[in-house]
């Protein structure tokens, strides 16, 4: 199955194999027709309404502001409803360096997001520690504390790259299975089990 997006040719996407693999994995069990079309409807809603959490620690956050401005205008895709409260946001763009003191905060923000929740690691620092690789206080990639869906390199990534990454995220949402079948949330649960925090029972 080709996961297509409006006015973007399929060949222009990178990482098509990954999405195809995901689709295959999900479809292995087969789905019945009604559940399948319900899923389609739900995924249409989810993938077209991706609300970010206003969360920025450094340079990448400013590029995220530029993304909202007139030139790049993320409102075209319906992403401009940036919520300050994590309860109401759909994904968290970890824009900037996460340091050890911030790690518990980032994790808590992630825990506060309502399901279904997604994470984009935006910028070199969030992907791997970036230029601060040798630092004593930087977390080498936000993937160590929260499960990441899309990695976006760049220092900082250009707004175009950010658009691309959120479109990739929305493509990922498009092939999810809400009713039955394999769900990405299982992987997420596994991650959270291996990175527990005390005092919080779900």
């Amino acid at each position: 199955m080709e996961v297509t997006t409006k006015s973007m040719p399929y060949e222009d996407w990178k990482d098509n194999e990954y999405i195809e693999g995901l689709v295959k994995e999900l479809n292995d069990n087969g789905a019945n027709v009604i559940v399948g079309s319900l899923d389609k409807l739900i995924n249409w809603g989810r993938s077209n309404s991706v609300w970010p959490l206003t969360f920025a620690t450094s340079c990448c956050g400013i590029e995220f502001v530029s993304l909202g401005a007139a030139r790049y205008d993320m409102a075209r895709f319906g992403w401009e409803v940036a919520r300050s409260s994590p309860r109401q946001a759909d994904f968290m763009m970890v824009a900037g360096t996460i340091v050890k003191r911030m790690a518990p905060v980032a994790r808590r923000l992630y825990d506060q997001l309502a399901e279904p929740k997604y994470v984009i690691a935006c910028g070199a620092c969030a992907v791997s520690g970036g230029p601060f690789r040798k630092s004593y206080h930087v977390v080498m990639g936000v993937g160590k504390i929260i499960p990441v869906d899309v990695y976006l390199p760049g220092c900082p990534p250009r707004p175009e790259a950010m658009i691309y990454s959120i479109m990739q995220l929305s493509r990922k949402m498009k092939v999810e299975r809400f009713f039955g079948g394999v769900n990405r949330q299982e992987k997420q649960q596994e991650f959270l089990k291996s990175h527990p925090i005390e005092g919080i029972d779900d």
Binding site: K6, R46, N48, S49, D73, R76, G78, P116
Partner: peptide
């Protein structure tokens, strides 16, 4: 800016998509 213009014609279905998503959110 342009505002929503990708979901449905002229982005008319944008708020419907938002509503669908909100209905099934945790």
């Amino acid at each position: 800016r342009l505002g929503p213009d990708r979901v449905g014609p002229w982005g008319l279905l944008q708020s419907f998509a938002d509503m669908f998503k909100m209905l099934i959110k945790e």
